[in-house]
Design a protein around this nucleic acid. Structure first.
Length: 478
RNA sequence: GCACCCAUCGUCUAGCCCGGCCUAGGACACUGCCUUUUCACGGCGGCGACUGGGGUUCGAAUCCCCAUGGGUGUACCA
């Protein structure tokens, strides 16, 4: 039997990182098992569902590199993949249930129901439906329906315990009497979540349901439904929740929770996935930095943690930096270029210069946009006010270095050079050492203070050949 | 309220199922040293946890019970 898994988001907002994580786990499992990963849109909440959210979610999934084998946009043999287009299916399946005596029409009004519920709570009884409409005769039902009375379809819940085995939770027991007869079809003919899920998962031949832990209690109703349909339930894996610092389920007030935001903040999709993957799952070789999409058969359902994970992006930033470092230099250049203001002199430089520049700074950034700030050491004519700098400047050897370098730079300018070379720089430092007899700290710090007006920075032999000569000239006269 | 789930460094986690190899391992963050005559990178260290109490056992982070804490659910939302 081929493995079939699905991710089933509601198009009521942008793709949430928790959703992205679930989608990823599903796809990884499908990949590891050589199965299929299906995207299904659960838009039965007609009030809040919007097509634009469906589109943006699919787009974000695509950005992350999570692609489905079947779905509303790509089709497949188990379609349609949008619940709003499957209404006829839910209706037929509900009729089957009614025929078999597993479900019935219920005409109770909302007022009646809330009154009973309040009474039950007051008397400390479980607020379950009392089954008033359960024993209506076929004639009564048809006449009520014919007279236009509104009716929902209610499932007749069995009084028995349900047990199932969860890949991450282990053996889960739902004792008898946890739920009463629950609604499966609303009065307007739209199915309720727990029912639609079962009809879809069964008819789409889903073999494994990997979803967040908040769905664990739903499993009971779903198990009841599978039983009534005489369908074998899928295997379940209820993955631990992502929570905020306050230990509550992650939501908008916890900050950046939508994938779109991470895309905008310039995170690498693989880095985000890598981080999300590690929240509740561990690599068999205890790796921290890897590309989840390339896990292959290394991914399995045995390595999930049961406890909820606090979503804290500090490690994500680190992982992003690691992923950047692993990128080909040309790719880093392209990405980095997008983040530098269009008026910046960087863009006027030739390719070779840019590559050299990226090579120097790429190990120091966690984000592409961090790069621009490192460029200052090549272009700025600002003077440091740090104590270290002032000290280096006050040495009696420093003016001698300045005087010498001023001459050298003038020569280079007259010769028409736009940049000095590493060789030039080496000659300079040899001269300062040999002729001026300045060495050690006085040499290096002295040259740095004269050439950059800073006390610290990347190695001079790397940055000086990349600094435009007119900048060097300006600095030497400051 | 009721039901269900969970509990290892500040955070993510390994170990737990099949008790001894755990003076509890790794990563992020923080921090010290080394290296690079600076900074960063890197390397090597440091800080830092088995929620509490009972039991079972020669031996418990690992098994059992209770307590505590936290979470989720309890809809004609998903």
């Amino acid at each position: 039997m081929t493995v079939r898994v699905r991710f089933a988001p509601s198009p009521t907002g942008y793709l949430h990182i928790g959703g992205a994580r679930t989608a990823m786990y599903n796809q990884l499992f499908a990949k590891a098992m050589g199965g299929k990963y299906i995207l299904r849109i659960e838009d039965t909440d007609t009030e809040r569902s919007e097509r634009k959210y469906e589109e943006s979610q699919i787009e974000d999934l695509k950005w992350l590199g999570i692609t489905h084998d079947e779905g509303p946009d790509v089709g497949g043999e188990y379609g349609p993949y949008r619940q709003s287009e499957r209404l006829h299916i839910y209706k037929t399946w509900a009729e089957k249930l009614i025929d078999k005596g597993h479900a019935y029409h219920c005409f109770c009004s909302e007022e009646e129901l809330t009154a009973k519920k309040e009474l039950a709570e007051k008397e400390k009884r479980a607020p379950h439906y009392d089954g008033k409409c359960r024993n209506l005769t076929v004639e009564e039902v048809t006449s009520k329906l014919a007279s236009g009375e509104e009716a929902v379809v209610r499932f007749h819940a069995q009084r028995k315990a349900y047990v199932f085995n969860d890949y991450v939770r282990g053996r889960v027991v739902f004792p008898e009497g946890m739920v009463g007869d629950f609604v499966i079809m609303r009065a307007n003919g739209i199915p309720v979540y727990n029912y639609a899920v079962v009809v879809d998962d069964a008819s789409m031949k889903i073999t494994h349901v990997i979803r967040a832990e908040e769905h664990l209690p739903n499993t009971l109703r779903q198990l009841m439904l599978y039983e009534a349909f005489s369908e074998t339930p899928p295997e379940f894996a209820h993955v631990s929740l992502l929570i905020g610092e306050d230990r509550q389920k992650l939501s908008k007030r916890h900050g950046a929770t939508s994938v779109t935001l991470y895309k905008e903040m310039n995170y690498l999709p693989n880095a985000l996935l890598n981080y999300l993957c590690l929240l509740g799952w561990s690599h068999p070789n205890e790796l921290d930095v890897f590309n989840p999409l390339e896990l292959g058969t290394l991914f399995n359902l045995d390595r999930f943690t049961k406890a909820a994970a606090i979503y804290d992006v500090k490690k994500l930033d680190f992982i992003n930096g690691q992923h950047i470092k692993a990128l080909p230099i040309e790719t880093i250049l392209t990405e980095v270029e997008k983040t530098i203001p269009s008026t910046h002199q960087f863009h006027k430089m030739d390719h070779e210069w840019k590559i050299a520049c990226v090579t120097i700074f790429k190990d120091q950034i966690n984000f592409f946009q961090d790069f621009a700030s490192h460029l200052d050491v090549l272009f700025t004519t600002e003077v440091s006010t740090s104590a270290d700098y002032l000290e280096a400047k006050s040495w009696e050897t420093t003016p001698k270095i300045r005087e010498y370098l001023e001459g050298e730079i003038n020569i280079a300018i007259v010769a028409g050079k736009k940049f000095v070379t590493v060789e030039d720089y080496n000659i300079w430092s040899e001269h300062v050492k040999g002729e001026l007899k300045i060495k050690g700290k006085q040499l290096f710090m002295g040259m740095r203070s004269v050439l950059t007006h800073q006390a610290h920075g990347p190695e001079l032999k790397f940055i000086i050949p990349l600094t435009p000569i007119e900048i060097l000239e300006k600095r030497i006269h400051l």
